[in-house]
């Protein structure tokens, strides 16, 4: 069974590009576009990897990450944070919150595919 990746992204075109790239890699891609309810959604579908945007409506990616790490079963879930906010302090805050990998937009397609594979262990 192929691994599943949850993409949390409110920008439709970016979501479309990511979905295209990962599906082509044979991954099972699920999308979510809102900060609200995101943690519950992750808990219910239990993805193998979350690609998380920082700037989301209603609830920021950082908060979602912190909530996620506080839940037992998800403290080790690989989370790739992808953001247009590329400042050093954002990266530091994300690492503090327990992010698995921090990448800035715009990204190189090859790099994100490589990192997804690495995080999924394949």
């Amino acid at each position: 069974m192929s691994k599943s990746v949850l993409i949390v992204e409110d920008e439709p075109f970016i979501l479309e590009a990511l979905s295209f790239l990962l599906k082509r890699e044979g991954l099972n891609v699920v999308a979510f576009t809102d900060g609200d309810g995101c943690v519950e959604h992750i808990q219910s579908i239990k993805p193998d990897l979350v690609i998380l945007d920082m700037m989301l409506p209603n609830r920021s990616g950082m908060q979602i990450l912190e909530d996620l790490r506080a839940i037992d079963n998800f403290s080790n879930l690989p989370v790739l944070m992808l953001t247009a906010k590329g400042q050093k302090k954002d990266r530091a805050a994300a690492e503090q919150a327990g992010v698995s990998l921090f990448m800035t937009k715009p990204f190189a397609n090859k790099e994100i595919i490589r990192n997804v594979h690495r995080l999924l262990g394949i």
Binding site: E11, E16, L21, G86
Partner: peptide
């Protein structure tokens, strides 16, 4: 600026 550039870069690479 980064948001539209992300889509442009990604799709043009594809």
């Amino acid at each position: 600026l980064r948001t539209p550039m992300t889509s442009i870069r990604s799709f043009s690479a594809i």
